[in-house]
Design a protein around this nucleic acid. Sequence first.
DNA 1: CATCTCAATGTAATCGTTTGCAACCGGGTT
DNA 2: AACCCGGTTGCAAACGATTACATTGAGATG
Lengths: 342, 342
Amino acid sequence: MASIQDVAQLAQVSTATASRALSRPDMVASTTRERVLSAARELGYQPNVIARSLRQGETRTIGVIVTDILNPFHAQLAKGIQDAADRHGYTAFLFNSDEDPAKERRAIDTLRGHLPQGLIIVPTSGARENLQALSGVPIVELDRMSGTPGVTTVTADNSGGATAATRHLISLGHTRIGMIVGQQDISTATQRHDAYRAALKAAGLTYDPALVLPGNHREDDGHRAALRLLTLPEHRRPTALFIGNNEMTVGAVLAARALNLRIPEDLSIVGFDDSRWAQTMNPPLTVVAQPTYDLGTCATEQLIAQLRHPRDGPPQHHQLSTTLIVRHSTSPPHTPAPAHSH
Amino acid sequence: MASIQDVAQLAQVSTATASRALSRPDMVASTTRERVLSAARELGYQPNVIARSLRQGETRTIGVIVTDILNPFHAQLAKGIQDAADRHGYTAFLFNSDEDPAKERRAIDTLRGHLPQGLIIVPTSGARENLQALSGVPIVELDRMSGTPGVTTVTADNSGGATAATRHLISLGHTRIGMIVGQQDISTATQRHDAYRAALKAAGLTYDPALVLPGNHREDDGHRAALRLLTLPEHRRPTALFIGNNEMTVGAVLAARALNLRIPEDLSIVGFDDSRWAQTMNPPLTVVAQPTYDLGTCATEQLIAQLRHPRDGPPQHHQLSTTLIVRHSTSPPHTPAPAHSH
DNA sequence: CATCTCAATGTAATCGTTTGCAACCGGGTT
DNA sequence: AACCCGGTTGCAAACGATTACATTGAGATG
């Protein structure tokens, strides 16, 4: 691999001038500049980022840690981040924590050695502790908030989305609305849960804890939880489910199918986060859509702005709006044969 | 960030001993070693990978370029690669070419500056040219083969899969089997196409070029192609479709639905590559499944083996087997009302 | 014509590590 | 007592870029 020494030698100048010709064109005479540039071209010279980073103390690299790259939601976040970073001349280093604090810790340590100039992270429940190892590096938390002090956050309007979802079900006439909620220590889960509860209350419906089950964000958690909710005795079984994340929604839909419940006739379902799957499943799923790709780009823009002009002020919190997309998995509840006239 | 100098100073040794204590424990007296290690621990020392790479000329980094991280197939490849790389102490640098040779070129250039020790790539049609910039770096082509000389390849058994898919449809009694095939210059597309053709021939069926349409691997290509095939006059319309990749299959299914064709009664469909979507769509899709994650890990193992023991022999070609999974999107053709008695 | 100025270039230090080589030391051998 | 040996350690040179500072030379100024 050609080094700048080779370029300098071929162009008959010192490495200093060669370097300047390439990165500070106006500091060198035009004739020499040409000589250097053509030498570089001839040798296929590509600057050694490693050496440059070492000298300059800046790597033009940002770290990215998501919890599950196989989840299309995260894949899309990652793509938004990478595209935006690329536009600004930064390289994004992508890691996976698999929702496991220990893996997150390892990712952070590996990252640290690479001297990232900033970090965008979808935090696990251990993030608050793990992130202490990275003091001095600007951090943007994406999608969730771990409560780490001083970090900028970029999230979706979870409350608004959950409120809209719950109101939608209420307006259709549902009174027994179940919810499958994510981990208690993940901000998105609690926000959605709180909003659901508030919306019920605002409509004068009672909040029934028996209709709310926790899950660990994965498909089988959704499956298990849905199975329990949907096998309650007929008069207590929820006629609608609001499910707190995309993966669990898949599990819940499959559980409903396994029980031979028709959607939406026997059970209305609203999921959180739109996806290819939600659009093409049968029937198409009513969901709260998030601006996923934009969440990624927004986080990146924020981070890079911060790298350019280091802030002192309090950390910022950006919230992108969500949209309820009504498809065909929701309808008025099917009133059971023996009319229940109050 | 604490450097090795700080550690050395705190432990009252030279940087040389500090370095050795950390990376060549047996070269230093146990008491000094302890002193250094505890100093390192106390300072939270994390070696600067950049400086180390510069000195050693090896970065313990491998580049990864896939064509579309949003495609679950590629996301899974990426995960397989990252997990395996991690196990061997390598860091994977992930890039996206978006199926665009120019972007692939840029990714390679960026990568080059980071001095990756090897590259795993799902090549675009321009790869053969683009890869010349990386001479000297071991390369493994994954999923597809660009024809670049000297590179190791790790692919799925496309021929076997396509053969099984076609035979399955034939054995059900279909005689007009259409195919939507990927780009001509991508090896997976041509292999699947050739096998399909051969299987038809072996069964004594004629290959009808009008039933074979090309697509660019994306959903809307599949949609468009399927629309054209399925609106052929009744007696020429295919009763079954074999579709050459996962994204296009989505488009084709949606096209069939738009035309109110029932699957499998009016149209049998076999897709290539399994997915969550294929399993949960209605009806569940018959597919040729690929060992996606394993393709990723296999590629990584191959690459790392090569880094350890540089080869001179001819490049190796590994092929992982595929499996036909029969679900409910395929059935015998529905004989039209006016019996077509031979 | 001496001096000053400024643009263009070169010299060499620097970033944090690793590592070849030399130095040192204590103990065994001759 | 001189020598050697092997285990520890330190000194200093790399790696490839950038950049503070020194140098050069040509043209402008007095």
